[in-house]
Design a binder for these strands. Structure first.
Lengths: 183, 183
DNA sequence: CGTAACCTTTACGCGAACGTTAATCTTTGC
DNA sequence: GCAAAGATTAACGTTCGCGTAAAGGTTACG
């Protein structure tokens, strides 16, 4: 079943670190931290296709597939993207298979060069998308920090104003509200 | 209808920049970029309650509510949090109303101080949560960058290897795959 | 060669996050 | 003061992202 060329060291030892090894769905699921159902669902949605199928039609994944699944999980859990978003980010399987096939089919260095460059520009696009999200998150932190500063201002005003008349406790002309966002 | 205390300047001029002005749901929705339905849904889920209701039971929102809605939208769209997550981040309305009431009810500087500090620590927690998300996104960027470097390596190898024998085009011992993640 | 463990597809179910419609008020502009 | 525009609650409909059987085939092990 280890159908990749020369593994000269062992005969049938199940080396789990062999990068050319193919695993079935449950093993991959546990390794990545997804359910088999989710993986099949992502396949339905065109996010990835197992590199091969067994004779009995079992899905077989290689190390590259596993890495892709990890990335998908990250996009889902960490970045909070929808499956549709992820699909757009990763581009569809058709293009992926097409490019891979072309890369392996040709040995023309110029064409290979183009394919590598295309892969790089896709990654660049992914990074841009992630950075855009980070920027928006940082803007939100900025907003929160501003709210915090308002509270700080009220606080110092309270502490400093403790020496002033205590009846003067409402209607400041600073147009801000106390405990803004946490009324 | 402008039931907030002194607006000494105008009588009935609809000043849209008046911070004490109250708006109805549709106006707020357009201003913030949500649908009225979503705003009602968020209220159902305890994310915010309009500051007031009209005599005919119309929801009335003030500038503070609008700001809160913007924050909620940011958490949803930019950060990708679920409504349940957002609820946990903002804490429930009961506590919010309670704190606001206590703040306005008391003029004891010590108690006000405590309330301000509580508000600040909540904001700090929000910021921590956002930063955690940013960290995870940056880890993903790191991963993508690593993939990019693999492609770069293949590229330079290709360019540099152009002087070598062209038949030597597969099975590198570097254990990496070409066009990783973009097969 | 049997059988337990794992896989396949198909399909129904479910909670989240709203969209939409219906029937009924309110508010606003003339 | 009346109609159009907009709001209310209630309730059903929809899409997404899976969970969970059901009814089988396949693999691995002894």
């Amino acid at each position: 079943m280890t159908l990749t060329h020369p593994n000269p060291t062992s005969t049938t030892a199940p080396d789990p670190q062999d990068p050319a090894r193919l695993s079935r769905i449950q093993e991959v699921a546990e390794e990545v931290g997804l359910t088999a159902r989710s993986i099949r669902y992502y396949e339905e949605k065109g996010l990835l296709k197992p590199v091969a199928r067994s004779e009995g039609d079992y899905r077989l994944y290689d190390a590259d597939d596993v890495e892709r699944l990890r990335f998908i999980k990250g996009l889902r859990d960490d970045a909070g993207f929808s499956v549709a978003d992820i699909g757009r980010l990763l581009e569809d399987e058709a293009a992926r298979a097409h490019i891979g096939a072309r890369f392996r089919a040709t040995d023309d260095p110029a064409e290979r060069r183009d394919l590598l460059l295309e892969g790089m520009s896709r990654i660049d696009h992914q990074v841009d998308t992630l950075r855009a999200k980070i920027d928006r998150l940082e803007a939100m932190i900025e907003a929160a920090t501003t709210r915090r500063r308002h509270l700080e201002a009220h606080l110092t005003e309270l502490d400093g104003g403790a020496r002033a008349h205590p009846e003067r406790a409402a209607a400041q002309p600073d147009a801000s509200y106390p405990v803004r966002g946490d009324r």
